[in-house]
Amino acid sequence: MDINILYYLIPSLFMFCCGLYGFITRRNMIAILISLELMLNSVDINFAAFNRFMYNDQLEGMFFSLFAIGLAAAETALAIAIIINVFRVSENIDVDDVVKMKN
């Protein structure tokens, strides 16, 4: 069986759409964060696949993936810290309850 680039791009796109769907529908902040991770990781797959199958003579896409993983980790760490702060003040991390500012 010939594994071509589509075998990577279609799962990655599927992951991205799952993340998008989760970001819009989920109500728990941790679940939203997981959805965001899905979206960020699908980008990494895209870069690696494009690099491997189309531009095999250089490593720009691979390096971008490496940096993107680091950035995603930083984003998650900060988001979790902020979510913990919210939990401390409101005992809840449901996004429907964090809407007190609308006037």
Partner: peptide, 23 residues
């Protein structure tokens, strides 16, 4: 805190969209 959560989640979301465009 409420503002920070809203900013953080939308910021990560937007950078995910941006990186998808870059890919």
């Amino acid at each position: 805190h409420e503002a920070a959560v809203k900013y953080m989640l939308t910021a990560v979301f937007s950078s995910a969209i941006f990186m998808m465009g870059l890919s």
